[in-house]
Design a binder for these strands. Structure first.
Length: 109
RNA sequence: CGAGCGGGCUACGCGGCCGCGGCGUGCCACAAGCACGAUGAGGAAAGUCCGGGCAUCGCAGGGCAGGACGCCUGAUAACGUCAGGUGGAGGCGACUUCAAGGAAAGUGCAACAGAAAUAGACUGCCCGUCGAGUCCCCGCAGAAUACGCGGGGCGCCCACGGGGAGGACCCGCGGCGAUGGGCACAGGUGGAAAGGCGAGGUAAGAGCUCACCGACGGGACGGUAACGCCCCGUGCCAUGUAAACCCCGUCCGAUGCAAGUUUGGGAUGUCUUCAUGAAGGGUUGCCCGCCCGAAGACAUCCGCCAAUAACGCUAAAGCCUAUCGGCGACGGUAGGCGUAGAUAAAUGGCCGCGCUCGACAGAACCCGGCUUACAGGCCCGUCUCGGAUC
RNA sequence: GGAGGCAUAGUCUCAGUUGGUUAGAGCGCGCGCUUCACAUGCGCGAGGUCACAGGUUCAAGUCCUGUUGUCUCCA
């Protein structure tokens, strides 16, 4: 399932201001219901060099991809929290928890 | 066998499933989408420290200022890079390392310490001279309290030896003090103290003289050159710092792909100039010089919207192989390859297997270097040193 | 991506001359005096790897090179 990238700075700031925030152990999820599903990841320089940042972004995208399609189309922002180690499974479970609690997807078994 | 030295290569691998970027082909009128196919980060992609390409700026005229570099020869598009050599330093050695021009063009600085800091004579060493009565008392002579002679007192630098009846009277040696010279050998310092060291020489000393080493000058030979080596001469004109100013030589227009080009305007108003000149604008920080000139500049409003889209954007001083020339950097010839182009920005996830359990790290216009970061593994050498054996 | 600057006491604000002997000031901090007490005032004191690492020099906060951190500008 394809999803669009959220690209423009205006849209991102709009999501950050008006969207709902949900925090899990490893990341914060911000979303705003919309017509189509789009997503952006947000990894600043405090996470390290370009290699480390790219790694986190890939993990986040891959983990998010496992929950498509969403029950409710949304604009989604994924903001990781500073850690020493990052793993796919941690992100995958936390995104799942966040999406379930906000009732954006059907409960999986 | 051990310890080294120099050089080079590599940067977890394989398989399955899912997924990403642009490209090609097909479905399709195009686009979107889907399918298939091949392809997709580095030796440093990094730091942005140099050098170029490329692009723009009415540059591609001169001067000043400013900046960079600095043994020699070569390589190269160019370089602050590289190669080969020279010299200095380090290592037993293989070898490593060095921003390595000029301090007799000039200026500045050299704190503290030290006698003295770029210059001198404080101590010292040596020689000569001096170390003493403008004193008091008595006697003789005298005009005389002057002068002379004799005696005494006090003073006459110290010590020793000799002469002598004795005496500080005389002589000698040494020290001490004063004074006039000579000298630059020695002086806790200091980063640096006027070539070094030894011998001769001298009153004491000094390149004053000599040998060796160093320095400087000249010549011969070798080398393209830096320079080397030999001979001769000069007693020796002079510390360090130029990553202080500076001098000499060589080189440099500025800005940087966020450069720049295109889509991509319209209306109104104001100002300036239009033979030349002046003014204005541009040209690198400044000056001269040059150029621009029928439109140009500015303001307001409308429209559009933009941190956008397209181009620049990847074929390049390119890579590989063979061969020739060269000690080498590199160059010539022939053949082959056609090798990421994103723009909120592509290489990942899961599973399995193997092992030595995987470092530093992600293209953003492109090349040549330098510097910095880095787990390991592998290979090469008429290479070096030590030990053992034959 | 490109261009440029800065780093000195306590997450403070800054001086530091042409390299030279001991790195200085304000605010803050601590102690004492003053006050019944506090504030103010006065006096004294502590506190520094001069961001880090090499080099030049007799000598480096200062000069040169590299590294790190931080800030600004460029559509």
């Amino acid at each position: 399932m394809k999803y669009a990238r959220l690209k423009k700075a205006k849209q991102i700031t709009a999501v950050l201001r008006t969207g709902k925030h949900h925090s899990e152990k490893s990341l914060t999820l911000v979303y705003l219901p919309s017509e189509t599903t789009s997503m952006a990841v947000c990894v600043g320089k405090k996470f390290g060099g370009s290699v480390e940042r790219n790694k986190i972004k890939r993990l986040l995208r891959e983990a998010f991809r496992g929950y498509l399609p969403l029950g409710v189309p949304c604009k989604v922002l994924l903001i990781p929290k500073g850690r020493e180690q990052y793993s796919y499974w941690e992100f995958f479970h936390d995104i799942g928890k966040a999406l379930e609690k906000e009732h954006l997807i059907e409960k999986r078994e």
